[in-house]
Computed example of a mutant assay.
Amino acid sequence: MIKISADQITTKLGSPYYLIIGNDPYLQHYAQTQLKTSFKQLGFNEQLTFNIDNQTDWSTIFDSCQEMNLFSDNTLIFLDFGEGSINANITTKLNTLSEMLTAEIVLIISLNKITKANENAQWYKRLSDKLVVVSCNTPDEMQLPKWVTNHLQQKQMQIEPQAIELLCYYYEGNLLALTQIIEQLKLLFPNQTITYDQIENNINDSAIFTPYHWIDAMVSHKTKRATHIMQQLKMNEFEPLILLRVIQRELILLINLKKGLSTKSFKQIFDEYKIWQNKRPMYTAYLNRFDIKDLFNTLNQLTEIEISFKHDSQLQIWDALSALTLQFMGIK
């Protein structure tokens, strides 16, 4: 089995089995398009797409395999799970399908995520020797600059380092818009190193964030980033009450962690609450910076905002959320 990122897919063309995993629509589309085009050039002109859910008629898929075996046509089968997952019933069907594959059949499976149970299934083990797993998860804040740099190299473009930071700031979480603006910049400024000012005059704030990006920015004490995320959530008309509920859960977690530290080590308390390893440094720093009284004060402020908003829908809720964001980070 080989594991690669989507931007490496052109280096691993020709394998009979591909598993495209991830929820980024741009990367999914890119990986699928590259594979379908490549196999068409290799003579796999028959390309069958099946959208997989609990109502899928698998007999049609099995019949297609048997017909291919009979006529020896090179055929690509693409199984698109969309937002769905692989349950026990579908696992049984995939087990059967994996037994029917021949050298004339290429199998591509597109899936949001894969579980340990999936990896232990017969079909996965049967394909694993020749399987290429393509990661299509959206690059995070730390990964994005390198992704942009690689993409620019593929486009044979030169952009000032500070300008790359600017692109990442305004297009994080939105690779489709990011690649479109890069293409536009290439047309506007051909055969030259593109400057910070040139990019600044041609971009829009198109970053896409979730409430969990907001939480991580606040816990990490990244004031500028937390404020930027708040602005984008407001612009995208995210429901304020959901944000209040998300930050409430986070504050309760932090209070419980802080209480636990009175008798346990950081490792013990993080293990107990199943804090991911990569998030432990930022939680450690936050808990060292604030005492439990600060956390309760922020929680009380959140409660007051929620009560006020429920009694007065005209309340300037986004102003209140901005103030709460700063209080969470200890900024008065």
Rank of each mutant, 00 (worst) to 15 (best):
N288W: 08
D312A: 06
H311E: 06
T210Y: 13
A320K: 09
D271C: 12
A217I: 01
W318G: 04
Q232C: 10
S313M: 05
P281V: 01
V219L: 03
F266G: 06
I292M: 08
Q316M: 09
A320N: 07
A226W: 00
K274W: 09
T298C: 13
F266C: 06
S262P: 07
I252T: 11
L254G: 01
R280I: 03
F309I: 14
Q268N: 08
P281M: 00
Y196R: 15
M282W: 00
I199A: 09
K310L: 10
T223D: 08
Y212G: 11
K234R: 15
P240V: 09
N202A: 07
N204H: 10
L261S: 03
L251G: 04
N236H: 15
A217T: 01
F290D: 05
F290H: 09
L257N: 06
L233N: 03
D291R: 12
N191Q: 08
K274M: 12
G260S: 02
I255W: 10
N236C: 08
K293W: 08
S308T: 12
L241Q: 08
K293V: 13
M235A: 14
L321D: 00
F238W: 13
R280V: 02
Y196H: 15
L241F: 06
A207C: 05
F238R: 10
N300E: 15
K222R: 12
T263V: 10
P240K: 11
W276A: 12
E237R: 15
D271E: 15
S265G: 12
Q268S: 11
D319S: 14
E237F: 13
Q231T: 13
Q232R: 13
E250F: 11
K234P: 06
A285M: 07
Q198R: 04
E304M: 05
N201F: 07
L243I: 04
H213D: 10
P240W: 10
T223S: 12
Y212F: 15
Y286C: 06
Y196F: 14
A285I: 04
F270C: 05
T263M: 10
W276T: 07
T223I: 09
N202R: 08
I255C: 03
D294T: 01
R249T: 08
